[in-house]
Write a protein that binds this DNA or RNA. Sequence first.
DNA 1: CGCTTGCCTATAATCGATTATTGCTGCACA
DNA 2: TGTGCAGCAATAATCGATTATAGGCAAGCG
Lengths: 231, 231
Amino acid sequence: MLFQEEKETPRKSTRASLVASSLLKSILRGELAPGSKLNIDYLREVYQVSLSPMREAISRLVSTGLVEFEDQRGYRVAPVSLQLLAEVTRLRSDLESLALRYAIERADLEWESSVLGALHRLNRTERDVSSPEAMEVWESAHWSFHKTLIEGCGMEMLVEFCQNLQNQSDRYRRIFLKKPAGSADIQDEHNAIANAAVDRNADLASKLLRAHIERTGNDLARQISGELPED
Amino acid sequence: MLFQEEKETPRKSTRASLVASSLLKSILRGELAPGSKLNIDYLREVYQVSLSPMREAISRLVSTGLVEFEDQRGYRVAPVSLQLLAEVTRLRSDLESLALRYAIERADLEWESSVLGALHRLNRTERDVSSPEAMEVWESAHWSFHKTLIEGCGMEMLVEFCQNLQNQSDRYRRIFLKKPAGSADIQDEHNAIANAAVDRNADLASKLLRAHIERTGNDLARQISGELPED
DNA sequence: CGCTTGCCTATAATCGATTATTGCTGCACA
DNA sequence: TGTGCAGCAATAATCGATTATAGGCAAGCG
């Protein structure tokens, strides 16, 4: 063949996959209330699929921690609480900074470049808190930056766990944070983290990342504490 | 029907659950080879269940990391490699010691008692390397001890992740370690960890736990390195 | 001969019907 | 008036049949 068609393996999605990702979004957006039962017949109707793919889709989300399951009782959306949010924030702080340390340890040009690339994209994405659509784009770039940082550790299991924690965190933000509380120095924080990372200053980078995550988490918790019972 | 057939197993579990736990054991024992495809029709035959619970059972194991899934390609047993083992060992070391630190931080009498209880049971369980059955019992007590230590952290997500890592580790041991390599001072190690824990000496306890996990993991890796390609 | 292309089989995915279990409701009874 | 149990929905779980897809094989074409 003259020029090798670069097929990205656009593997055709199954219904179960499509429903699963759609359902994930619904849960993250809080459209399916925390703690509520996932009635399969109802969801079947909503997504217009049969029982098998519906069950399969739901069951896949169990591994993300956003759905819980009990024999003969079915599935329900994971509950929320200030305590759980604190747990998520602490683990994000511990694990993302851990992953970043490993990433810096085995850093190569490739990784450094992706980090600076992701940073640039994030900085060039406007954070217009008045536009939900724009915020979606910004949040996506934001997580991309974080993910790029930690993916350098080369440990899939760790990255996946961080992804789950991020999803949890994201859910709290979407559900409870009506007014995006964006301090102006967010951008400075990201720049500082990225610089420390490519400078191979693990202690500093790790410290800054922790601070960044904990600040975000605490801001969120403070906003929520009025709306949610202490436990 | 006149004679309502009494179920021989008055269980609450569903077929899917039973099959899932049975399948998990099979994978841990290496009866289902790492990397091999999980042929649903075949497994259906083996476990004598229909397609739906079979799929459900398999799909639940995906969250443990012992089974991988791809759309239209089905399920397969997670592969093994020295590199992956190293990853598992490192994460176990990092995360169990992290959990232990948190546990010590919020330690109460209840936790201290369970730790010493689990330690006692472990010490009183004979480690007879010539008897597979005895070793099963010992391994169970061993993991119980570890789990008791880390459960004190009160973070379910972290404990569950540690459990997954432990399962992974366990699989390598069962598959590759034909001759249990038990140094005589294993018991001393456990005692030292437990003592440091109830003494609330987080630094020492954490250091000892790391050493314990890394020693085990490295012993295993050394034994394997002859059998497995470096990757 | 080598490459493409179109069956063909194995297997993954989906479906709708059926069975089992749970949890509620209302009636009998103390 | 409270308790317990039978019967009755609601819904979770399972089944076997059907449809869709992938990957191998062989015929057709260059």
